[in-house]
């Protein structure tokens, strides 16, 4: 593969509808173009997410998801696909961060994505992440000033999560990303991945000038489709992944 290959990050809600399905889905995605997997941790109050992901979160909890399920899924998936945990801070905080981070590492997980921990609050955990060679993914938002972007990206590792518009996941608002991308690229060599509102229709446009895309709601909409059987859901998600991976590298 060329160095210029653009990457695909896929979000799935862990434990929806069950643990084994999540494992099968994750492995299928890994074989169909997904470079990095975001294993979502269902939370009762996912404020950064739109209706699709919120719905999947609540359904997973109703079906009995427990944090230990995430550990079991990760144990199988993380050795095979580059894996990050995506969850709201309370889910991680309640596990005791000092114990959780080394545990995650031992399972093969490479980092965390925590949408409700901005730069300032992340500083308290920087040493802990560094000590275990774990990444805490940095977010930049379209509301950020250039000065703030410079501060945030200075220590960013792995990739920068560029929020494509002011809003919640899975909505369709379009903003011109080029000036925003340029102001990020000015201060960092770390790859920039675009997330929020990325699907089959928008991926090609959104990836312009960026190094990858993050896709969540588009997969979750397939998982929530009650007309589909479990195996159809996996087939359709794999197809979607493959398609987006091709689109962003056209």
């Amino acid at each position: 593969m060329k160095n210029s290959t653009k990457n695909l990050v896929a979000y799935i809600t862990s434990g929806y509808p069950d643990k084994n399905f999540s494992i099968d889905l994750a492995l299928a995605l890994g074989e169909n173009g997904v470079d990095t997997l975001e294993l979502g941790v269902p939370f009762s109050d996912p404020v950064a997410d739109g209706p699709a992901i919120e719905n999947a979160n609540h359904k997973a909890l109703e079906l009995g998801f427990k944090f230990k399920d995430l550990l079991e899924i990760s144990k199988v998936v993380a050795p095979k696909v580059d894996t990050l945990w995506m969850g709201y801070f309370n889910s991680f905080y309640q596990q005791n961060m000092q114990e959780l981070i080394p545990h995650a590492k031992s399972l093969g997980v490479n980092g965390l994505i925590i949408p409700d921990v901005p730069y300032e609050e992340s500083l308290a955990y920087k040493e802990l992440f560094d000590a275990h060679e774990m990444t805490n993914i940095s977010f930049v938002a379209p509301t950020d000033s250039e000065e703030r972007i410079a501060t945030i990206v200075k220590d960013a590792q792995k990739f920068i999560y560029m929020v494509a518009y002011t809003g919640i996941t899975g909505s369709g608002t379009a903003e011109d990303l080029q000036p925003f991308l340029a102001s990020i690229k000015k201060y960092t060599q770390t790859p920039v991945y675009v997330g929020f509102g990325v699907n089959e229709k928008t991926a090609k446009e959104k990836v312009k000038g960026a190094d990858g895309v993050i896709v969540g709601s588009a997969f979750i909409n397939i998982l929530l489709d009650e007309q589909l059987s479990k195996s159809q859901k996996i087939t359709n998600c794999a197809k979607l992944a493959k398609n987006i991976k091709e689109l962003i590298n056209e």
Binding site: D116, P118, E120, T143, D144, V163, T166
Partner: peptide, 9 residues
């Protein structure tokens, strides 16, 4: 301040 980055500014 435990909020999405969009709100920080």
């Amino acid at each position: 301040r435990y909020v999405p980055e969009t709100l920080m500014p």
